[in-house]
């Protein structure tokens, strides 16, 4: 037991630091909002990770699912007076439906064309919400989206919303861990490594690719819906192509194919964005620099660095043991 604790020492210390930092940040309204953004991005990027990190399918159109989730949930609560908590879940399924629709042709295409197809999808969603004024109120956006309430308790402050979102993030993490460790997760990874070999092993490549799209779109749609209910206001500006690139950057910066990668990536990129609030015009440049850093210096993201650090410390340990003997 103690040995296992020792092994997990790094993780425990990290958790303790995160808890303290979050606790301090929760004191202020604005900082609590930043934490909420981090949580929402973690959910969305986790969705992208299942698609890209585990199945190896690119998507540069995830802002589309994010938008579908947001607008579906907002419209369901405002037009049909559904309770927001229910609307969020329905929004997730609607987004999932679109994921499946896109996945049918996408599962056949190679990387370049998949990128283009997903870009085209993202653009179509963006154009649709920007010009369909009767439904989405066009570029002026939708205002007055109610906060989520469960069992009569309304999550109206940023602090309470943070705990709600944290709960969702933990649920998403558990779900992702269970998917990844299951037969489905192994099929995903096999497809990423070599689709032909996976096919030869009796894995239905097309089915699992579509499944990955569905799960991914569901999670990103949920994230979008939560965003709508957190902010109370959505407009097409949030759902441009650069949002898709931002999700991709977060994922790659954190590290693909891992549980904590999306969390690290989201936290660092959201924090940077908020710190650079006074240099809004440099924002794109900062993202570009992040991408270039990842491409040239961190091919496996921050998680990759942590892994290699662990590896080297383990080596030192074994070296010491050998020397002592």
């Amino acid at each position: 037991m103690l040995n296992r604790l020792k092994e997990k020492k790094g993780l425990l210390i990290a958790l303790a630091i995160i808890t303290v930092v979050c606790g301090l940040m929760l004191k202020e309204r604005y900082l609590a909002l930043v934490l909420c953004f981090v949580c929402i991005n973690i959910i969305a990027v986790t969705g992208l990770d299942i698609l890209f990190g585990y199945t190896g399918q690119v998507s540069f159109g995830h802002a589309g699912y994010y938008a579908i989730g947001s607008y579906t949930s907002a419209l369901l609560t405002l037009r049909l007076n559904l309770p927001p908590a229910l609307a969020v879940i329905i929004a997730g399924f609607v987004s999932m439906l679109f994921g499946v629709i896109i996945a049918f042709p996408a599962a056949k295409l190679v990387k370049h064309f998949l990128s283009l197809l997903t870009i085209a999808f993202g653009q179509m969603v963006y154009i649709f919400i920007a010009v369909t004024v009767p439904l989405t109120n066009g570029t002026s956006g939708i205002v007055g989206i109610p906060h989520i309430s469960i069992f009569g308790y309304t999550f109206s402050t940023n602090q309470s919303n943070f705990f709600l979102l944290l709960g969702v993030v933990i649920l998403v993490f558990i779900a992702k861990k269970r998917i990844v460790d299951s037969r489905v997760g192994r099929a995903f990874i096999a497809i990423r490594e070599n689709p032909h070999a996976a096919n030869g092993m009796g894995i239905n490549v097309r089915y699992y690719k579509i499944l990955a799209f569905a799960v991914s779109a569901f999670l990103t749609g949920i994230a979008g819906a939560l965003y709508a209910h957190l902010m109370g206001f959505i407009s097409p500006d949030t759902f441009t192509a650069s949002q898709s690139t931002l999700f991709m950057t977060m994922l790659l910066f954190g590290g693909i194919g891992s549980l904590v990668g999306p969390a690290i990536g989201s936290a660092i990129l959201v924090a940077t964005t908020e710190l650079m609030q006074s240099f809004v015009s440099y924002q794109m440049l900062i993202y570009a620099i992040f991408i270039l850093i990842v491409l040239f210096y961190l091919p496996n993201g921050v998680v990759g660095i942590i892994e290699s650090l662990k590896e080297s410390s383990r080596k030192q340990h074994t070296d010491k043991a050998v020397n002592n003997a």
């Binding site: 540069f60 794109m284 440049l285």
Partner: peptide
């Protein structure tokens, strides 16, 4: 190849 695409996206942003 995906990384090359991302590289060109970041070039576009710059």
């Amino acid at each position: 190849t995906v990384y090359i695409i991302l590289c060109t996206i970041s070039v576009a942003m710059v």
